[in-house]
């Protein structure tokens, strides 16, 4: 599917209350254009649940269920099993969860659903922190980033640990489809959404980089640019893992990470040593991802 083939019609419609430049809202809007009307969605507690509509308002033209924060994968699986009973296996069941709901509190249910190969699509829009509760660190927050729970203090400043690699964990489950994407490479994103939609009857996981201007202390117009840069620096590898085979979709230019960090206030306090550590992380990550792709070729 190309950009120009995307339907005019939206199933996540305008009128929602996301912040300007919200990557999460853009991910959901594009994804819903690809998934289309025969879809049932699930949202955990996250920004989307709130900006998607407060009772009795709603921005979705497809049904959605919300139960709790940490059970997206199992709730989607519950819907999918019920649909099987009702003979409706064509309907896509999609969970849209944040990185916190995925990497941390929701990882148990996610792992279980992947292991049982539940017939669902799990989309993690990765804005790299708990945004709904006011920008707290998650397992997916990158090294050095300021959040309200990794404040810039006189002794410690920013997150001291590195980003948890959930797609790699999903690959370790031998999930039939795992892919990473960003809003900086739309044709690649569309291809992956479409593949996820059409690969029926199995567990599919997508992790999509989703800039959060207020949370990243960043200009709201920079979303697309930053979504390209994260790939160019090697901090985010675009790849697909399909039926046991891993393919890297883009070779990074290995632009210095500082080019990327300097556009975001969340990294403003980084020292030279911090930047060197992050640079090393990017290089290591690219090396590891290449090795994985080689191993899973």
């Amino acid at each position: 599917m190309k950009m120009k083939d995307l339907p005019e019609e939206d199933w996540f419609v305008n009128g929602h209350t996301a912040c300007p430049g919200c990557g999460g809202a853009t991910v959901v809007k594009i994804a819903m254009k690809v998934f289309g009307p025969d879809t049932i969605t699930y949202f955990p507690a996250n920004c989307l649940l709130v900006f998607g509509g407060t009772y009795p308002l709603n921005s979705f033209k497809v049904p959605y269920l919300h139960v709790l924060f940490e059970n997206s994968a199992i709730c989607a699986a519950g819907i999918s099993r019920a649909l099987k009973r009702l003979g409706k296996t064509d309907t896509s069941v999609v969970a849209f969860a944040g990185d916190g709901g995925t990497a941390d509190i929701g990882i148990q249910a996610l792992s279980g659903a992947a292991e049982r190969n539940e017939d669902i699509i799990y989309v993690c829009y990765d804005n790299e922190a708990y945004m709904n509760t006011g920008i707290q660190r998650s397992g997916a927050t990158p090294f050095g980033a300021w959040t309200t729970t990794t404040p810039v203090g006189s002794v410690e400043a920013g997150k001291g640990e590195y980003k948890k690699d959930i797609p790699r964990i999903m690959m370790a489950h031998d999930a039939p489809y795992v892919a990473t994407a960003t809003l900086g490479f739309i044709p690649d994103l569309l291809k992956k959404l479409e593949k996820a939609k059409n690969k029926k009857g199995c567990f599919r996981y997508l992790q999509i980089y989703a800039p959060c201007p207020p949370g990243w202390r960043m200009d709201a117009s920079l979303g697309a640019k930053i979504s390209k840069m994260v790939v160019d620096t090697g901090l985010w590898t675009l790849y697909e893992f399909e039926d046991g085979k891993m393919t890297i979709n883009k070779k990074p230019k290995m632009t210095p990470v500082e080019e990327y960090t300097k556009l975001q206030g969340r990294f403003r306090h980084l020292t030279k040593e911090n930047l060197a550590a992050l640079q090393k992380y990017a290089e290591d990550k690219w090396r590891k991802d290449q090795a994985l792709a080689e191993a899973y070729s």
Binding site: C75, A76, G78, I79, L86, Q108, A109
Partner: peptide, 18 residues
């Protein structure tokens, strides 16, 4: 994988209509 998930699955399945 847990009772939390067991009840979640039941909630989702019954919400779907079974």
């Amino acid at each position: 994988e847990s009772e939390h998930s067991a009840m979640s699955a039941c909630v989702a399945a019954t919400a779907t209509g079974v």
